[in-house]
Nucleic acid binder design. Structure first.
Lengths: 142, 142
DNA sequence: CTGCCTGCAAAATCTTTGCAAAATC
DNA sequence: GATTTTGCAAAGATTTTGCAGGCAG
């Protein structure tokens, strides 16, 4: 469930006010563990009978991403997906190119290899994107 | 350098004609090993004194990507980058979030771990994106 | 009450598309 | 000579921004 304390702290830190609209966006993001785009979040809020403009959805998500409460996924199709990070551990994604389903994976070996590669270059790792585009079992043999 | 045989074969396979414009786009893509966006390709062609419209640049790149002559990179900033695949082996990318510089890496261990992960899920790996966003040494201590 | 926030619509950005003119086979 | 291609500009898609009125502190 949504933790308003975390939201309040983040907004305060950014010098922003605590508003109903911002809370609705956070509520909706926390309502599922899906990987949805901005339009889906926007529509879901409206289907709950609440009213928040697209602009506010985008603006609020930006704040949440900046404060690491929400993760932004760029799959290369021009639409960013978002997932809340409440009680979440680090993971990367498997994406079915047929049905769009997204699953999560995590591999310690890969994580440490990444660190070594970056170290060898003498660089500093900030973040990474690791996406495995697959055909899932249902799409392979329907 | 650009290999026109490969281009001719790809166009024939797609049922497309061999035109000057398509060759110019391929020439420009092969002219460097950079990771450039469509606009940069377009401008570079024009700076060579040749004339190819943006639409044709986009349309031609699509064909080249489809035929694995060019690789499309999505860095999550809304602008796709392209690199030709002449004499290229598989690699992934390190991207400096300060200066935008792109470098390449390849790690056998990571490659095989990926295969194992996908296998464990019972899926089929089609392609992957692995990008390490870093601060390069020049940007770290200028 | 003051000034930030919202909603709307317009702008911005990158890419795709429709159509008449031009080029290829 | 028929049919693809091209170039242009307009349309699309997603996201961002400017501004007048509304609401939090």
């Amino acid at each position: 469930m949504a933790t308003y304390d975390q939201l309040k702290r983040a907004l305060k830190k950014e010098g922003l006010r605590y508003t109903q609209q911002r809370q609705y966006v956070w509520d909706e993001l926390c309502a599922t563990n899906d990987h949805r785009d901005a339009e889906e979040i926007y529509l879901a809020i409206h289907q709950s009978g609440l009213n928040v403009s697209r602009a506010t959805v985008y603006r609020t998500i930006d704040v949440l991403v900046k404060n690491k409460m929400v993760r932004k996924l760029e799959l290369g199709d021009g639409r960013a997906r978002y997932e809340h990070k409440v009680n979440a551990t680090h993971h990367d994604h498997l994406i079915c190119i047929q049905c769009g389903k997204i699953e999560e994976f995590m591999d310690e070996v890969i994580e440490s290899r990444q660190d070594e590669i970056v170290k060898k270059f003498g660089y500093k790792l900030v973040r990474h994107i690791h996406q495995l585009f697959i055909i899932c079992s249902e799409c392979e043999s329907p």
